[in-house]
Computed example of a mutant assay.
Amino acid sequence: MTVAAISQAGTDTRVVELPEVTDPRHVAPKDARALSKLFFEQLTVLEEGTPEYQYARNTLIEMNISLVRYAAGRFRGRGDDMEDIVQVGVIGLIKAIDRFELSREVEFSSFAIPYIVGEIKRFFRDTSWAVHVPRRLQEARVELAKASEELGSRLGRSPTVKELAELMNLTEEEVIEARLAANGYNSSSLDAALNGDENGEAALADFVGSEDPAMELVEDFHALAPLIAGLDARDRQIIHMRFVEELTQSQIAEHLGCSQMHVSRLLSRTLKHLRESMLTTR
């Protein structure tokens, strides 16, 4: 059974036949690979925001849940509920679907697995630490623990900072920084009563300011602003219409007098440029 949909690309209009998948989550992996390619082809011609577009995108997500479960299996035994890990992995799957292009000439599964695994690893990294610590210091903490155990067994005593620095091929300052960062792995409850309080009622939370959620965006905005300013006028206009005015690609194409496909290519190219530039400046 198929579902007929009207797609528009510039002035061309044609009918696209969408296969109706009754139970996408139970499609065999082999069949999912073949169907996924067909659905990705349809996403390039269907108008974003239409029921047909959403059907194609949602079906892709559900058909490829098996990829998420496969990737999540690597993280069994970490102490978290497997369904929670799968839900996090689905976020990576959705990102992969939104960024995949058939022109890459690679299997979608090969493209999606790094996104899924990366999202799960980010989940563990961000939720395992009591406070946010840069990744290099998180990794240094692990190496510091290994080096301390090795030297402790060899020397029969706690190693000095100098000895750790020589073994880890780091400076003494870097070893000290890693030790300080390790303190962020565990924390005390903010509700715990403070020792020495006369009334015995004061808690640490009473003396800690609240976190401004917008602060996390400051660094990103600061890095992104000059990159956007460096775009040409047309690319800046497309970015503004898509993410500020929240217009669909077809509406942008109508405003600029070009095809939706052309807008999609321009937008993909610009976002790729911004993304790579952001990663370079970090």
Rank of each mutant, 00 (worst) to 15 (best):
G209V: 10
K272D: 08
F39Y: 02
R136M: 14
I85P: 12
L155I: 01
G73Y: 04
T22H: 09
S189H: 05
G257W: 15
P226L: 07
L256Q: 02
S128M: 10
V90S: 08
E101A: 13
G73V: 12
R157G: 03
Y70R: 04
P159L: 03
D197F: 09
R14V: 03
E172V: 11
E211V: 14
H222D: 12
P114A: 00
G92I: 03
P29H: 06
V131E: 03
I176S: 12
V175E: 04
I120Y: 14
Y55C: 01
F124A: 01
I239D: 04
R57C: 01
A56C: 15
G89M: 05
I228T: 08
D232N: 15
E166Y: 00
D126W: 07
D197W: 04
I94Y: 10
F243S: 03
Q249A: 03
F124K: 01
E107N: 09
D232I: 07
S110T: 05
R104E: 13
A192L: 15
L256W: 13
G209Y: 06
R99F: 06
H132K: 15
S250E: 13
I85E: 15
I176K: 11
R234S: 07
S189R: 05
V244W: 06
L137V: 04
R135A: 11
F221C: 11
I61C: 13
Y115G: 08
W129L: 08
L227M: 13
R78A: 14
V27S: 00
D12S: 11
A34F: 03
R33W: 07
A214C: 01
R269N: 10
L46M: 01
R141L: 13
E163H: 06
I85V: 15
L204D: 07
A229L: 14
P159M: 07
G77V: 05
A145E: 12
D232C: 14
A4F: 12
A225M: 11
S264H: 02
A71H: 04
D206Q: 05
V131Q: 10
F75W: 12
H26I: 09
R135Y: 14
E211P: 00
V3P: 00
D232S: 09
G200L: 12
A165D: 02
R125C: 02
A34Q: 03
Q260K: 11
E119Y: 08
A145S: 10
D84P: 09
A140D: 11
P19K: 06
V218E: 05
E245D: 15
T59P: 02
P19T: 10
H132P: 07
F108Q: 06
D31N: 12
K30E: 14
F221D: 08
S109F: 05
V131L: 13
H273I: 09
